[in-house]
């Protein structure tokens, strides 16, 4: 799923709406501060202490705005397969050749490891230095399902550039279904506080062409000159 695309659309629209509301409210506020100074005014601009028809009309308008924002939120959450909590049910909609490639990702204090079902290939690292960060290799252009779990405390798998995040729990597996349309390498972080070296729990996700991915899963190493 294209988390980044959905995020950019929804967040972009919300920022415009928020900016409009903020400018309107602040504009009215500043206008009142300038025009209604006691020095400038002998009497109140208006004396009414309530105006029920206006208040009710505004409440209805707010209800409409809320309805629109709820629709925006829910419909886009559905585009993301409900944040993938229902991924297993949705996979049945995928064509037989397009079943996702599963990557088992395990968080621990304080780094990450990855395993590839049906293969002895594993990825790990210490996260102590940038050079020791694990690189989780995935195929480009094919649905990938991360199966996230933890060995100890709660962590969270976050790839900021791809706008995707999911918590990793002990004794529980969360899934995250996504497709990498391009090859590349992205920095990932742990975003759920997990103890002393939480700050160091960085990793990479690297998408490579499917053939190179197959070679990686079989040999445990990317072929020389692999795409970055």
């Amino acid at each position: 799923m294209d988390y980044r695309g959905v995020f950019d659309q929804v967040f972009g629209l919300q920022v415009w709406i928020a900016a409009g509301v903020f400018v309107l409210v602040t504009g009215l506020l500043l206008g009142a501060l300038v025009l209604n100074r006691a020095r400038r005014r002998d009497k109140l601009p208006f004396a009414a202490a309530e105006h029920n028809p206006l208040e009710i009309t505004f409440a209805v308008f707010l209800g409409g705005a809320a309805a629109f924002l709820v629709w925006l939120s829910l419909s886009n959450n559905h585009r993301l397969d409900y944040g993938d909590t229902l991924a297993v049910a949705h996979q049945t909609g995928l064509a037989p050749g397009r079943q996702p490639v599963r990557v088992d990702v395990t968080a621990f204090q304080w780094c990450w490891s990855a395993a590839y079902p049906g293969s002895t290939t594993t990825v790990s690292g210490s996260c102590a230095t940038p050079a020791a960060r694990p690189v989780i290799v995935v195929p480009q252009g094919v649905p990938v399902e991360f199966a996230l779990t933890s060995r100890d405390v709660v962590h969270a798998f976050w790839v900021p550039d791809l706008a995707v995040k999911r918590d990793a729990y002990p004794d529980h597996v969360n899934t995250l279904l996504m497709t990498f349309p391009e090859t590349g390498q992205w920095l990932g972080r742990c975003s759920e506080y997990c103890g002393t070296y939480h700050k160091d729990m960085d990793f990479y996700v690297r998408a490579v062409p499917p053939a190179q991915y197959q070679a990686f899963v079989q040999t445990g190493a990317l072929p020389a000159g692999a795409a970055t």
Binding site: Y3, A18, F22, N77, P160, V164
Partner: peptide, 19 residues
């Protein structure tokens, strides 16, 4: 309040929560 509506939207919150 306005940023609160953004983070009440899961598709946005998946990116910004715990950041």
């Amino acid at each position: 309040g306005l940023t609160g509506i953004m983070i009440a939207t899961p598709a946005v919150d998946y990116q910004v929560t715990d950041s």
